[in-house]
Amino acid sequence: MSSDEQRRLGQLRDNLAAVHERIARGCADAGRDPAEVTLVVVTKFFPASDVLLLHRLGVRHFGENRDQEAAQKFGEVRAALSHAGEQEPVLHFIGQLQSNKAGHVAAYADVVQSVDRPKLVTALAKGAHAHDRRLLVLLQVSLDGETSRGGALPEELDALADAVAAEDLLDLRGVMAVAPLGADPDASFARLREVADGIRSRHPGATWVSAGMSGDLEAGLRHGATHLRVGTAILGSRPSLL
């Protein structure tokens, strides 16, 4: 390993440890077990080499939000790990997804966290069948009524959940949301928890709540987040901004 790789490994190790400490404290404050929480490290804009270093540090869940970048990067990552006989990562697609790209995403993603309309359900199901793969699905919820940034309105979710559940290669696992800009994350995630409870009452297997990022993961934990999506706090600023 080169000196640059060793330095980067040390940075990632320190940042990852700091985030795990935040999760431990947040869970303690909320009376929760950290083992209930899955950390999804968001690696968009960062190279495959960083993913492999994080994998070496024990990270297994990764998040990406751009189809072309994710497909290329994780093709490289999986090839390298397979060659080394290492466990494959779990890839979460977390970005807004166009229905005409859903079939391609279905070929490599394990989880799609951003399902927000029936047309996307249909396209993902078609892609899952074409590639003979089962996909785990989260419904993205808009918490401020603004759907242009992705997310379905809460009143649309029952029908959307039923649409996912009707597809044999799509597994409905729960909900995801981003706290609206400028909003109180506690209030936002409390609302998400209500929505999640409603979905789970009709679909008992939908137990995941993806809420909380680098700046608000503690609020997510206070309101039942099972999955945290953390990028900057672990990887630093985007490479294009360095």
Rank of each mutant, 00 (worst) to 15 (best):
S148F: 13
H131A: 04
K126M: 03
L120T: 01
A70L: 01
A128M: 05
L97R: 02
H83K: 14
S114N: 11
A80Y: 13
E69I: 03
H61Y: 14
A130C: 09
H131I: 02
P118Q: 11
G103Q: 10
S142Q: 10
D116W: 02
Q113I: 04
Q72N: 11
A79Q: 15
R60K: 14
K126G: 02
L138Q: 02
E64P: 10
G103Y: 04
G75S: 10
S148V: 09
S114G: 10
T122P: 06
S148Y: 10
D116P: 03
L143Q: 13
V111S: 10
G63P: 07
H83N: 12
K126I: 03
G63H: 06
L135K: 07
A106G: 06
S82P: 12
V111Y: 14
F93K: 00
V105W: 01
S148K: 14
Q98P: 00
D144Y: 13
Q113P: 04
A102P: 04
A102Y: 00
A84R: 15
R134W: 02
A130I: 00
V105R: 03
A106L: 06
N65S: 13
N65L: 04
V141W: 12
Q72G: 04
G127F: 03
A106W: 02
Q140H: 08
V141E: 09
Y108C: 05
L136E: 15
